[in-house]
Design a binder for these strands. Structure first.
Lengths: 238, 238
DNA sequence: CGGACCATTGATAATTGTCAAAATTCGTGG
DNA sequence: CCACGAATTTTGACAATTATCAATGGTCCG
């Protein structure tokens, strides 16, 4: 289920390098930290953390992506974040030692770098810049969460669909002579659970966009954005 | 509109004392910080910060409460937080120097302690404990935001009404031989904008709860919870 | 006391959720 | 590489919920 592995890329400092919170450190310092890291590999569907589990380490995504979500008693799922390479989680409960407030599941093959809580704390005291970077990153994440909350709270379904397409285009899109191809990290159901709507509604809205010539669905995981301007209009000015 | 005032309570260190992020400092350090603080007073309806304004200071609520919210282009409002005494905001943009990502409005008479961004940064480097406290507090706030997101995303309106009553009971409630009296910080419209539903729906749900003998509305800003168990059942187990 | 503001109620319409079935896509094994 | 079964997605019909509009009633504060 979870596999320890030796990451060649990590050994030459590359993996940590692309993690923003460590970006201010020099090669020497990075090497020291490197020794503290435990690598793990997960495959699609593996659960990295269960909501309510004690968190004893900070997990940095090195490759692949994961969803962080909460379940209601009756089984409905709300996705809070989609984390990709360079993102981290588990820092919330770093000092209080509280249990995780969400579950985390691999959306495909995922490689992580794990630092124990204690080691991470020591780093914070040794390198004050890291603490500052973390506050900064938490601020960014909070801003994203606030935007999602606004989106679900007051914006209509068309707006939300538009917004998620723009978000995914920026994170998972590649340009092409026809438009932008997005490799979706989530299934239709995942998108629905991210936007707080029903799976079928996502299908219907996508079909409608396809009829209007705004997008073209290549397969279940890839869509081509033909008219980004109209997607932006759909999302509403943010 | 905004008044500078001299806070007797602050001068004997009490105001800072109840701010969690400064709680680890001793009296001497507190006194030094005290000198850096600028006090402001606002009255109901005053806007402390506009969404998009540059933020040059961290604001700590000393008395009263405020709402932090975002507006869509068509004027709909989503309330993100209700901050009360001891809470702070403006730290998100501390290092990046970014503009505020929400507006903040006084819900009644509000007194604040303001620290300039530069002064606050210096404090962080001088007292590493403060940085740790802030990361901790940001973690808490994020957890609250995640819960709100889940609530609006997947929980039905009854659940949300139950949840907000519990939240307000904890923060603004006082016990009584009949039950718990809540002094609501928000109007019906405010509650609606916090829960992502229409004003009229809040009225209807409250009326229904009153008919069922679960609550009793004393006036526009005070309700008496008669049966907390059934409120908890309404909210669903969290 | 009066006027402004806020809250409630009713009727209706619009949107989305739910359930069921068909169609498509995906992945595995031959 | 194809075929098959499983999983996912799409579509349709209908029901349920909530938003909206409009009018009335209540509350607060000078």
């Amino acid at each position: 289920m979870t596999v320890r592995y030796n990451c060649a890329k990590c050994n030459d400092s590359l993996c940590m390098h692309k993690v923003p919170i460590f970006s201010s450190l020099d090669k020497e310092d990075l090497k020291k930290i490197m020794g503290l890291i435990r690598h793990h590999e997960y495959k699609k569907g593996d659960i990295l953390v269960f909501d309510g589990d004690p968190m004893d380490s900070v997990v940095i995504i090195n490759e692949g992506s994961v969803k962080a979500y909460k379940n209601t008693a009756d089984g409905r799922e709300q996705i809070l974040y989609v984390f990709s390479a360079g993102d981290f989680f588990g820092e919330q409960n770093l000092f209080s030692g509280q249990a995780s407030t969400f579950s985390v599941e691999a959306l495909g093959t995922v490689k992580t770098c794990n630092l124990s809580r204690k080691q991470f704390q020591e780093l914070l005291y040794r390198f004050p810049d890291i603490a500052v970077k973390i506050i900064d990153e938490l601020g960014n994440r909070m801003t994203r969460l606030e935007n999602t909350l606004q989106s679900i709270g007051v914006r209509n379904v068309d707006n939300r669909i538009g917004s998620i397409l723009i978000e995914f285009a920026e994170k998972y899109g590649s340009n092409n002579d026809k438009g932008t191809i997005i490799h979706l990290p989530l299934s239709r159901e995942g998108i629905a659970n991210y936007l707080g709507i029903a799976r079928e509604t996502v299908s219907r809205k996508f079909s409608q966009l396809e009829n209007d010539g705004i997008i073209h669905s290549l397969n279940n995981r890839e869509i081509l954005i033909l008219d980004m301007d109209r997607i932006e209009a759909l999302a509403g000015i943010n």
